[in-house]
């Protein structure tokens, strides 16, 4: 299955002339660490944030992608709701065609107060083999990946969501229970790589 997925990913990569040969980290494996500067000039280290929180949600997002934008309010609300529970959300913009100024104004317009970083050269997207926006990864305090995939199954209608996968994963993690659904297929716009 993993091989099949890799073949499919490779096909898509060829079609998009993208370079992303790494596989996404396996569930339970160490999340690739990265250090970046947030849009407001602060340093962000995944390893440090993971140790300091009960979970880190790494989200590959976009300013232009309608799928990603459909989740703007859900990202804002979840980041706010889970902050008090010890979870930090972090947005990564890996698209080469969306600069820091665009990302900053987009964050301001949508009330995204969680840390957001540009991912120069889409290096972090490559490390995580993230192909679409939005794609989310949940990292536990040990720096292990506990969930990968979509936020939920219904981008168009938040009220019609029947499978709130990210929420379920976070709730399980916070309750000390196993995450029932550790992987879902992320869908959305392709990440515009260099």
């Amino acid at each position: 299955m993993r091989l099949f997925r890799s073949i499919l990913v490779f096909t898509a990569v060829c079609a998009l002339s993208a370079v992303a040969l790494a596989e996404s980290p396996a569930i339970g494996a160490a999340a690739p660490d990265f250090q970046l500067t947030t849009l407001d000039g602060k340093s962000f280290s995944l390893a440090s944030e993971a140790k300091a929180h009960k979970a880190v949600v790494v989200m590959f997002i976009s300013t232009q992608c309608p799928y990603s934008n459909a989740y703007n309010d859900r990202m804002r609300d979840m980041a706010s709701a889970y902050a008090s529970k010890g979870v930090v959300f972090a947005g990564l913009n890996s698209n080469k065609n969306e600069d820091a100024a665009k990302a900053t104004s987009h964050a301001k317009a949508h009330g995204h107060t969680f840390p957001i970083m540009k991912d120069p050269g889409n290096k972090v997207a490559d490390m995580y083999d993230a192909q679409h926006t939005p794609t989310v990864f949940v990292i536990d305090p040990q720096g292990k990946v506990r969930y990968e995939g979509r936020i939920d199954e219904n981008y168009e209608d938040p009220a019609g969501v029947t499978s709130p996968d990210l929420k379920n994963a976070l709730d399980s993690l916070l309750a000390g229970k196993p995450v029932a659904k550790t992987m879902t297929k992320a869908f959305g716009c392709s990440i515009k790589r260099v």
Binding site: L8, T11, A12, L16, Y67, Q131, H132, R150, E153, T184, K185, A186, F187, G188, C189, S190
Partner: peptide, 14 residues
Amino acid sequence: QAFIDAVDPSWGGE
């Protein structure tokens, strides 16, 4: 997601 998967399991919606 079901629509996307039904069209083609390898499609990510792009």
